[in-house]
Design a protein around this nucleic acid. Structure first.
Lengths: 339, 339
DNA sequence: CTGAAAGCGCTAACAT
DNA sequence: ATGTTAGCGCTTTCAG
């Protein structure tokens, strides 16, 4: 592998100048800079990450903590993080936080403490108090993504507002018998995503002076299968008769659509369905939803940590609020005429 | 951050002994080893990755090249890679290989050349010849996952055998009008996955002396939507009349099931459907499929590179062949009785 | 603006 | 078995 000395020799300067020219830190004459660039390019020189990190204390690497790798949402966010980081020359080290206790200890006590990263982005993770502490002790910026976190700086995803907007859409169509598919408090993690979405749902109803009907609430686990089963239970219940359904995730909404089809309930003629997320399958099922632009969330997260790492070079302070958007497709419509 | 000197002082030994005791390389008396361990633990010492890498030339880090982060299959494989690597104390650096030409150049010319990784695992990636070259020049083991690769050592995934097995299952049920959903040669990447699956399909037919009917072949792009559209075309065609359908991916198979339902074609009574992959949604749709255990593929890939990096510590040479399995669920059955 | 030189924190000979 | 010591390849004062 070609080292900095060879570049220095070829360019006729010292290694210090090579370092300065290539990194952009410190001043170098335009002439030297160009000669160094040419020399480096012709030799295919790229500075060794470990040598550079050891000397500078900066790794140009960000750690990303992910609870699941095979769920669409996290993949999408991760893609955004990766794109934004690469644009700025940063690598990303992936840490999969499995539920296994021993592996988690390893992760927080060893892997993360190797000084391999300049910052950590934690995706919608359920962190124990001790784990939160470990993260803070790392001495690098930590950012949680997925909603406000009780003890960590977080990217503000407004699940409450999203749920409220979704429910308001149903209400504006004229629905009043609106079912809710989502988790009860027992499912809540640190981010309280399920709870926030449920509160947004209830707030929208309250805003419209529509009472919450307990028989229209069904617990489900945020998967297609969970949504399918919950919707099946709901539709089988004699006292329910919803004309619309708000699912706290697109996957549950899709499960509900499939459940409705199976029971001969037409969507949206007999039942309107709306979800939340912006899941890739939403398009296929023509699902009306609240898109939270997961990829953009990832990019924002990356930009936020970069802003902390390189205050100077950063974009002119992006607005803090993360965008979301009501996407009306074909699964919502006015309620059927009263029989 | 606590350094090796503090540990050495606390344990009453030299830094060299600390290094030896903690890394397991070189001999250390059991007594010293224990004192070092205690000292390190009490101080919360973890060796700096960059210092260690610079001095030893080993990074304990593997790069993983991924084409898409938001597709289930890659997430699943990545999860397996990550789990196996973490078990052995390795970190993973994620490289997202986007289609963007400039970003790809950056990736291969800069990011990968920082000597940050001891090995590279490339997941079912379409690599240009120059990119393959760049990878080889890295001077570290490179492993391709996703089928035989023309110019890189690869984990052998036998798509041909999988497709053949799937088709044979349909044949054994008594089907002879078997449709095929998949890509034509024009979709082939380096791994030729689509082509291999098509050839496996044709081979199975040949084995059973069933002629290939061109009107039963439909091109699709391996997504649910693509499968849906292709199946819709197929079912609308007057001359087709398939009693069974082999989709070269589970996602297409699911699309086909949905298309059949929509047209009132019952699965499996009127049409049997089988896929390939072992996709998470297969369970929900009760899809009969060939499971290729993507997560296990990832683990195998990780084990394979680890075996090259640490020949000694490795498992007793796992068998090379990757497993796959016919999973019979509820979308396949004998063909309907002849009218 | 540029070069000399002192580390960054660890590992690996080389001694002992 | 353990300590001493010379780097690993860069970055960053500090002079000039």
């Amino acid at each position: 592998m070609v080292s900095i000395d060879e570049v220095a020799r070829l360019a006729g300067v010292s290694t210090a100048t090579v370092s300065r020219a290539l990194s952009g830190r410190g001043r170098v004459s335009e002439a030297s800079r160009e000669r160094v660039r040419v020399a480096a390019a012709s030799l295919g020189y790229v500075a060794s990450a470990s040598a550079s990190s050891l000397a500078s204390g900066r790794t140009r690497n960000v750690g990303v903590l992910v609870p699941f790798l095979d769920r669409w949402y996290f993949g999408a966010v991760l893609g955004g993080v990766s794109a934004a980081l690469m644009r700025r020359g940063y690598d990303i080290t992936l840490y999969a936080a499995t539920p296994d206790a021993a592996e988690r200890r390893d992760l927080f006590d060893t892997f993360l403490r190797r000084r391999r990263v300049d910052a950590v982005i934690a995706l919608a993770l359920e962190l124990g108090p001790d784990e939160t502490g470990r993260l803070s002790e790392l001495g690098v910026p930590v950012l949680a993504v997925g909603g406000p976190h009780p003890r960590l700086p977080a990217l503000p995803v407004d699940h409450f507002a999203m749920a409220r907007t979704a429910t308001a859409h149903l209400l504006s169509l004229g629905h009043t018998r609106i079912a809710y598919l989502g988790a009860g408090p027992e499912f809540d993690l640190d981010f309280h995503v399920p709870e926030q979405r449920r509160r947004g749902f209830e707030q929208a109803l309250a805003d419209a002076a529509v009472p919450v009907a307990p028989e229209l609430l069904e617990a489900a686990d945020f998967t297609i299968d969970g949504g399918f089963r919950a919707a099946t239970r709901l539709l089988a219940r004699a006292d329910a008769h919803p004309t619309a359904l708000f699912a706290a995730s697109d996957e549950m909404a899709i499960g509900a659509i499939l459940a409705a089809r199976e029971r001969g309930v037409r969507v949206p003629e007999d039942l309107s369905v709306i979800g939340v997320d912006g899941h890739e399958l939403g398009e296929f099922f023509q699902l009306t939803t609240i898109d939270q632009f997961p990829r953009r969330q990832g990019e924002r997260a990356a930009e936020a940590v970069l802003a902390r790492l390189e205050p100077a070079a950063s974009a002119p302070s992006v607005s803090r609020e993360l965008p979301f958007e009501l996407v009306v497709r074909a699964t919502t419509a006015p309620p059927p005429a009263r029989p």
